[in-house]
């Protein structure tokens, strides 16, 4: 049940995307999101779709694995579609009691669904091909200009990497706690909303206790190894751009330019 969530997971394999610099992938994801919101007509979305397809092919991550991750957000997408479908005012094309579907609503719903799916798949490709360590290194490096304003960039990056690192551990633990409580007759999918919320107590209490214990253990282990924050810390694998990374930046700029051109000209 919980292990079906593949969002934010790393998929181990060797591909161009896996080898490229995390800063390129982070910037790329950002540009891709901009492209999605710049897109206004069918050609804009087609461009985004083609780019996404090429990236999935390059990442060597099985499409099945990616789609499985999408299943967990199916509810979110359905909700968005339903709201847009019924709540957008305009020319009514179908009505049932107080429910009305408008042409504008139909358009809006389709657009939002496509945007959401592409957006999540796009950022999913980044996390699937980048280890959490690389990701935070990249983020720290990209945000380092803000150090001028005394922003705690290193600390934020460290917190992010710890959070990412603990997602699989806490998920596994949640699974074990659920099983231990189910063995005592607990049930997590019965009753009305209040009963369900109550049934989470036996799950959340052990989970929080364990999370706090892990946090203090980790802090102790870091202090025992003289961790002192970001100042003058060197890296085992410093980030260095390769030629292919500059090419990738070029491609990304072209993508952005193309999408803007498509919006203006068509």
């Amino acid at each position: 049940m919980l292990k079906d969530i593949t969002l934010g997971q790393y998929y181990q394999t060797d591909s161009i995307l896996h080898r490229s610099d995390p800063r390129v992938k982070l910037t790329g994801t950002l540009i891709y999101i901009v492209v999605l919101f710049v897109a206004q007509n069918i050609w804009g979305y087609a461009l985004a779709a083609v780019f996404l397809a090429v990236m999935i092919a390059l990442s060597k991550v099985p499409v099945k694995f990616m789609l499985k991750g999408m299943r967990s957000i199916a509810f979110l997408i359905t909700l968005t579609v339903v709201f847009n479908l019924f709540m957008t005012p305009g020319e009514v094309i179908w009505s049932f009691y107080k429910l009305k579907i408008t042409a504008e609503g139909l358009k809006m719903a389709a657009r939002m669904a496509i945007r959401l799916i592409f957006l999540i798949m796009g950022s999913n490709i980044m996390t699937l091909t980048t280890t959490p360590g690389e990701l935070t290194d990249g983020l720290e490096s990209l945000l380092s200009p803000f150090k001028v304003f005394h922003a705690p960039v290193h600390e934020i990056a460290m917190m992010m990497s710890i959070a990412l690192r603990f997602i699989p551990i806490l998920m596994e633990e949640t699974d074990k706690i659920m099983k231990a409580q189910m063995a005592r007759g607990a049930s997590f999918d019965e009753g009305n909303i209040i009963e369900r919320a109550k049934s989470l107590v036996p799950l959340l209490v052990p989970l929080f206790v364990s999370a706090f214990r892990r946090a203090s253990d980790l802090a102790l282990a870091m202090e025992a190894r003289c961790y002192r924050g970001g100042d003058k810390r060197t890296r085992m694998k410093p980030l260095r751009y390769k030629v292919s990374d500059y090419v990738a930046y070029g491609v990304l700029i072209m993508l952005l330019a193309a999408s803007i051109a498509l919006r203006i000209c068509l």
């Binding site: 063995a183 049930s187 052990p206």
Partner: peptide, 19 residues
Amino acid sequence: RLLRSQVGLVFQYPEHQLF
């Protein structure tokens, strides 16, 4: 529920069930 009360399973870590 009935089955799980008849086949009682105690997991390895008590921390996973005490709440």
